[in-house]
Amino acid sequence: MAKTILKDLRMTTESRSYIDAMHAVLTHAGWTSCSKAMLAGMTVTGFRFAVHRHLTAESPTAYNWVAENFLAADFMGVTASSSAGFAFHPTFPLYRQEAVAEIKASLDRGIGAVFWKDCFAVAAGYDDEEGILYYDDGSGHGLQRLPYGEFGQNRSPYWYYQILEDTVELDPIEIYKESLMQAIYKWETHDRMLPEADYACGSKAYDAIKQALHGGAFDPVQAGEVFECYAAAKRDVGEYIGVLASLWPQLEPAAQAYRKTAQAFLDVLGLIAEDPSMKRQARNLVRLFDEAQRAEQEAIGLIKSFMHERIRNRFDHVGLR
């Protein structure tokens, strides 16, 4: 009967994304000293931009967690394993058992684990006698308790966990360059997992947002949450490209463009604070998203010319290393 609680593993939320959880685990493990902004850029997660056409709150986490969070770790040279599924599937109890076992094993190795609890949370300990996991979801409530049997039972029908295993040394310059390639991929490619009738990705996400604001078919509270998450992501990306620009001065205009995008998002949040219904300010909001889109498009264009050789050599699939 074992009990383990990792010391000092705490999570804070900024973008309320996977990055918040990953950053907590990696920093605690001593595997990175990067800021969340740098992590968001290097893992490419900051560049992902997808929305439900009705701007539902799940938009920022509507992506292939298994693939993309694996890649996030892989791009950083961190080996990981993960699993996910529908909690209503008959095999779920088998997977729940394995999940808890894997998470406990990770905690025994002194590494926190990421899992889904209607948001990405970090498992920081367990107690066999009580049959619970201790976790932090960044809500400020400190370590919370989750009985083993309740793992994976969420409001959303998904269960998911990721174990971060070990690190491999990578050339940081290659990480930065690869992230730029992936940023282009994210801007231009629709996520296969999301039906196009209901979701839009990359550049088209802006169009979907503008359309929703025009048409009014959305819940402003949920939309507000979506914009907050992405405002943090855009800010992270602006910071990240800024750091890259100190290495490669040619990227400075791209950094500025992203900062413009981030600023537009901040302005959006400002307008929403003033008009939570988003009806009165709809036109101004659309204008701001338009600005954000144009600035981000400019940034991508600059990144593309910076990376043109490698882009050409990846032919149809800019995302495939």
């Binding site: 509507a62 890649l71 996910a84 296969r192 997992m193 995302g319």
Partner: peptide
């Protein structure tokens, strides 16, 4: 809509 599958990591 799931949160996995259809495509695996590239």
């Amino acid at each position: 809509v799931p949160r996995w599958g259809l495509h695996t990591a590239r």
